[in-house]
Simulated assay, not measured.
Amino acid sequence: MVGNKNQPKSVKINIGISTEDRSKIVEGLSRLLADSYTLYLMTHNFHWNVTGPQFNSLHNMFMQQYTEQWNALDIIAERIRALGFPAPGTYKQFVALASIQEVEGVPKATEMIQILVNAHEAVARTARSIFAVVDSANDQPTADVLTQRLDVHEKTAWMLRSLLEE
Protein backbone atom coordinates (compact mmCIF):
# COMPACT_ATOMS: atom_id res chain seq x y z
CA MET A 1 0.00 0.00 0.00
CA VAL A 2 1.45 3.34 -1.05
CA GLY A 3 0.68 6.39 1.03
CA ASN A 4 1.34 8.00 4.36
CA LYS A 5 3.63 5.71 6.36
CA ASN A 6 1.85 6.76 9.59
CA GLN A 7 -1.51 5.54 8.31
CA PRO A 8 -2.39 1.94 9.21
CA LYS A 9 -2.58 -0.53 6.38
CA SER A 10 -6.14 -1.66 5.70
CA VAL A 11 -6.64 -5.41 6.00
CA LYS A 12 -9.48 -6.99 4.05
CA ILE A 13 -12.23 -8.53 6.18
CA ASN A 14 -13.59 -11.84 4.97
CA ILE A 15 -16.00 -13.17 7.62
CA GLY A 16 -18.82 -14.16 5.27
CA ILE A 17 -20.73 -10.86 5.57
CA SER A 18 -20.46 -8.37 2.71
CA THR A 19 -19.05 -4.90 3.30
CA GLU A 20 -22.45 -3.44 2.42
CA ASP A 21 -24.25 -5.62 4.98
CA ARG A 22 -21.59 -4.97 7.63
CA SER A 23 -22.03 -1.25 7.01
CA LYS A 24 -25.81 -1.48 7.46
CA ILE A 25 -25.42 -3.53 10.64
CA VAL A 26 -22.90 -1.05 12.02
CA GLU A 27 -25.26 1.83 11.26
CA GLY A 28 -27.87 0.15 13.48
CA LEU A 29 -25.36 -0.83 16.16
CA SER A 30 -24.10 2.76 16.25
CA ARG A 31 -27.64 3.96 16.97
CA LEU A 32 -27.93 1.26 19.65
CA LEU A 33 -24.63 2.38 21.19
CA ALA A 34 -25.78 6.01 21.21
CA ASP A 35 -29.12 5.13 22.82
CA SER A 36 -27.37 2.88 25.32
CA TYR A 37 -24.85 5.55 26.27
CA THR A 38 -27.58 8.16 26.66
CA LEU A 39 -29.55 5.77 28.87
CA TYR A 40 -26.41 4.98 30.89
CA LEU A 41 -25.74 8.67 31.52
CA MET A 42 -29.39 9.37 32.35
CA THR A 43 -29.52 6.49 34.83
CA HIS A 44 -26.28 7.57 36.48
CA ASN A 45 -27.60 11.13 36.74
CA PHE A 46 -30.79 9.87 38.38
CA HIS A 47 -28.72 7.73 40.77
CA TRP A 48 -26.86 10.84 41.90
CA ASN A 49 -29.91 13.08 42.16
CA VAL A 50 -32.86 10.97 43.29
CA THR A 51 -34.58 12.11 46.51
CA GLY A 52 -37.69 11.25 48.46
CA PRO A 53 -39.15 8.29 50.40
CA GLN A 54 -37.84 5.76 47.85
CA PHE A 55 -34.33 7.22 47.89
CA ASN A 56 -32.42 4.19 49.14
CA SER A 57 -34.12 1.59 46.95
CA LEU A 58 -34.03 3.77 43.83
CA HIS A 59 -30.45 4.91 44.45
CA ASN A 60 -29.30 1.29 44.70
CA MET A 61 -31.44 0.08 41.79
CA PHE A 62 -30.19 2.87 39.52
CA MET A 63 -26.61 1.94 40.43
CA GLN A 64 -27.22 -1.69 39.42
CA GLN A 65 -28.80 -0.52 36.18
CA TYR A 66 -26.11 1.96 35.16
CA THR A 67 -23.38 -0.58 35.99
CA GLU A 68 -25.01 -3.17 33.72
CA GLN A 69 -25.43 -0.56 30.98
CA TRP A 70 -21.80 0.56 31.28
CA ASN A 71 -20.62 -3.00 30.67
CA ALA A 72 -22.96 -3.36 27.69
CA LEU A 73 -21.45 -0.32 25.97
CA ASP A 74 -18.17 -2.17 25.51
CA ILE A 75 -19.91 -5.24 24.06
CA ILE A 76 -21.76 -3.14 21.48
CA ALA A 77 -18.70 -1.04 20.55
CA GLU A 78 -16.49 -4.11 20.22
CA ARG A 79 -19.03 -5.76 17.92
CA ILE A 80 -18.87 -2.65 15.70
CA ARG A 81 -15.06 -2.95 15.68
CA ALA A 82 -15.23 -6.69 14.89
CA LEU A 83 -17.33 -5.81 11.84
CA GLY A 84 -14.50 -3.55 10.66
CA PHE A 85 -15.76 -0.05 11.42
CA PRO A 86 -14.91 2.59 14.01
CA ALA A 87 -17.33 2.87 16.92
CA PRO A 88 -18.83 6.30 17.61
CA GLY A 89 -17.48 7.64 20.87
CA THR A 90 -18.16 11.35 21.26
CA TYR A 91 -21.07 13.24 22.77
CA LYS A 92 -21.60 14.94 19.42
CA GLN A 93 -21.90 11.59 17.65
CA PHE A 94 -24.16 10.14 20.33
CA VAL A 95 -26.51 13.13 20.26
CA ALA A 96 -26.80 12.87 16.47
CA LEU A 97 -27.46 9.10 16.56
CA ALA A 98 -29.63 8.67 19.68
CA SER A 99 -33.41 8.45 19.72
CA ILE A 100 -33.45 9.25 23.45
CA GLN A 101 -33.46 12.90 24.47
CA GLU A 102 -31.47 14.16 27.42
CA VAL A 103 -33.42 15.22 30.51
CA GLU A 104 -33.22 18.84 31.62
CA GLY A 105 -33.15 19.57 35.34
CA VAL A 106 -33.82 17.09 38.11
CA PRO A 107 -37.19 15.35 37.87
CA LYS A 108 -39.03 13.95 40.88
CA ALA A 109 -38.41 10.26 41.65
CA THR A 110 -41.65 9.02 40.06
CA GLU A 111 -40.94 11.03 36.93
CA MET A 112 -37.41 9.57 36.80
CA ILE A 113 -38.92 6.10 36.82
CA GLN A 114 -41.31 6.94 33.94
CA ILE A 115 -38.50 8.56 31.94
CA LEU A 116 -36.37 5.44 32.41
CA VAL A 117 -39.26 3.18 31.34
CA ASN A 118 -39.59 5.20 28.14
CA ALA A 119 -35.82 5.16 27.56
CA HIS A 120 -35.50 1.39 28.06
CA GLU A 121 -38.40 0.85 25.66
CA ALA A 122 -36.67 3.15 23.13
CA VAL A 123 -33.44 1.16 23.36
CA ALA A 124 -35.44 -2.05 22.88
CA ARG A 125 -37.06 -0.61 19.74
CA THR A 126 -33.67 0.42 18.39
CA ALA A 127 -32.23 -3.06 19.02
CA ARG A 128 -35.25 -4.74 17.46
CA SER A 129 -35.04 -2.51 14.35
CA ILE A 130 -31.64 -3.98 13.43
CA PHE A 131 -32.75 -7.62 13.28
CA ALA A 132 -33.92 -7.60 9.64
CA VAL A 133 -30.49 -6.75 8.24
CA VAL A 134 -28.72 -8.93 10.83
CA ASP A 135 -30.89 -11.93 9.94
CA SER A 136 -30.51 -11.44 6.20
CA ALA A 137 -26.71 -11.18 6.60
CA ASN A 138 -26.65 -14.37 8.69
CA ASP A 139 -24.86 -12.47 11.49
CA GLN A 140 -25.45 -14.63 14.57
CA PRO A 141 -22.98 -12.83 16.88
CA THR A 142 -24.78 -9.51 16.38
CA ALA A 143 -28.16 -11.26 16.75
CA ASP A 144 -26.89 -12.65 20.06
CA VAL A 145 -25.87 -9.18 21.28
CA LEU A 146 -29.27 -7.77 20.25
CA THR A 147 -31.18 -10.60 21.95
CA GLN A 148 -29.24 -10.11 25.18
CA ARG A 149 -29.83 -6.35 25.11
CA LEU A 150 -33.54 -6.79 24.37
CA ASP A 151 -33.89 -9.14 27.32
CA VAL A 152 -32.24 -6.65 29.69
CA HIS A 153 -34.15 -3.57 28.48
CA GLU A 154 -37.57 -5.22 28.31
CA LYS A 155 -37.14 -6.77 31.78
CA THR A 156 -35.88 -3.50 33.25
CA ALA A 157 -38.77 -1.55 31.72
CA TRP A 158 -41.21 -4.06 33.22
CA MET A 159 -39.63 -3.78 36.67
CA LEU A 160 -39.66 0.01 36.52
CA ARG A 161 -43.29 0.07 35.31
CA SER A 162 -44.18 -2.10 38.32
CA LEU A 163 -42.99 0.71 40.60
CA LEU A 164 -45.51 3.06 39.01
CA GLU A 165 -48.55 0.83 39.67
CA GLU A 166 -50.81 1.61 42.61
Rank of each mutant, 00 (worst) to 15 (best):
G89D: 00
A87D: 11
S99I: 04
F85S: 14
E104H: 09
V95W: 00
P88E: 04
Q101E: 15
V95H: 08
I100N: 00
I75L: 13
E104S: 15
Q93I: 00
P88H: 04
Y91V: 08
T110N: 14
A77C: 12
A109H: 11
T67M: 09
V95Q: 10
S99T: 14
P88K: 12
E102H: 09
Q64H: 11
P107I: 02
K108F: 09
A87M: 13
L73R: 09
L83H: 03
I100D: 00
V95G: 00
K108H: 07
A82Y: 06
Q93F: 00
E78L: 02
P86L: 15
I75F: 05
W70S: 15
K108L: 12
Q65K: 11
D74G: 07
Q64F: 02
E68K: 15
L97H: 08
G89Y: 11
S99L: 07
Q101A: 13
A98V: 01
P86V: 13
Y66D: 09
F85I: 02
A72G: 11
Q93H: 03
P86R: 10
P107D: 05
T67K: 08
Q101C: 05
Q93E: 13
T110Q: 14
T90A: 06
A77G: 13
V106R: 01
A98P: 03
A82E: 04
E102T: 02
Q65C: 10
Q93K: 11
E111P: 06
M112E: 14
A72V: 01
I100G: 03
V103M: 04
E111R: 11
K108S: 14
E104F: 03
E68M: 08
T90N: 03
Q93W: 01
L73I: 10
W70Y: 10
S99R: 14
A96M: 03
Y91R: 00
S99E: 15
G89F: 12
R81G: 05
Q64C: 08
K108N: 14
I75Y: 02
Q69D: 09
T67H: 10
F85D: 06
L83V: 00
E68G: 14
G105V: 06
L83Q: 00
P86T: 09
I100W: 01
V95D: 06
A72C: 10
S99Y: 11
I80T: 10
T67A: 13
K108P: 08
A82V: 02
Q93S: 12
T110S: 14
Y66I: 10
Q101M: 07
M112K: 02
A109I: 04
L83R: 07
E78T: 02
Y91G: 03
L73G: 03
P86M: 13
N71Q: 08
M112V: 04
P107V: 01
T110E: 14
P88F: 05
K92W: 11
D74L: 05
A96Y: 04
P107G: 02
I75W: 00
G84W: 02
D74K: 08
